[in-house]
Amino acid sequence: MDESIVILIILSLLLGAGCWLVFIWAVKKGEFDDMERPKHRMLDDDEERRP
């Protein structure tokens, strides 16, 4: 029984670590720098393909 708990805990830690890495990547990429513009972005037209 004890082994199963340890395995589950380690699994959950790995899952969480995955999310944490995504979060770090997002912060580094500046996803949280501008809270104003993205909400207007959905009103923009899609960009046409570059010629």
């Binding site: 500046g30 501008d34 104003e36 513009r37 207007h40 972005r41 009103l43 923009d44 960009e47 570059r50």
Partner: peptide, 26 residues
Amino acid sequence: CASCAWLNEKILARLDGVRDVRVNYA
């Protein structure tokens, strides 16, 4: 307005050698 920011972003992005443009509307 937001479209001014959009316009600047798109036009500048098409210049040769420009990799990335972010316009902060606020």
